[in-house]
Computed example of a mutant assay.
Amino acid sequence: MGILFVDVLWVDDSLRGQGKGQKLIQEDVTSACEQGFTMMRLVTFSFQAPDFYNKLGFKKKGKLKNFPKGFSHYYCTNS
Rank of each mutant, 00 (worst) to 15 (best):
M1T: 14
P50N: 08
Q26N: 13
G21K: 03
L56Y: 03
S31M: 04
T38C: 10
L64W: 08
K23D: 09
I25K: 03
N54M: 05
N78F: 07
K59I: 06
K59D: 09
D28T: 11
K55F: 07
R16K: 06
M40G: 01
A32L: 06
F37R: 10
D12F: 07
A32N: 13
S31W: 05
A32P: 08
M40R: 00
S46A: 08
D28Y: 07
S46Y: 02
M40T: 05
H73W: 08
A49P: 01
Y53W: 05
T44S: 04
N78H: 09
K69F: 15
V11T: 15
K69A: 12
Q18C: 10
Y74M: 06
K55R: 11
L56H: 01
V11L: 02
Q48M: 07
Q35F: 04
L56A: 01
L64D: 14
L24V: 03
F52N: 01
T44K: 02
Y53N: 00
G17V: 03
T30W: 07
S79F: 12
L64Y: 12
Q48C: 00
H73N: 08
K61L: 12
H73G: 02
K55P: 02
G17L: 14
T30G: 12
T44C: 01
F71Y: 14
V6I: 14
L4S: 11
W10F: 15
M1W: 12
L56P: 02
M1E: 09
V43C: 04
K61Y: 12
K63L: 13
V43A: 04
Y75D: 04
N66A: 15
L15V: 07
V11H: 01
V29Y: 07
V8K: 11
V8G: 09
S31H: 06
K61N: 09
S79Q: 13
S14W: 15
K23V: 06
I3Q: 13
S72Y: 14
G57R: 05
K60D: 07
L9E: 05
F5D: 04
E27R: 06
F58A: 00
T77P: 04
Y74N: 00
K23Y: 13
L4P: 00
M40L: 09
L56R: 01
D13W: 11
F45E: 00
K61M: 14
H73Y: 12
G57D: 03
W10K: 08
H73E: 04
T77A: 02
K69P: 00
C33G: 03
F37V: 00
V11E: 03
D28N: 08
G62E: 10
F45V: 10
E27W: 04
I3S: 13
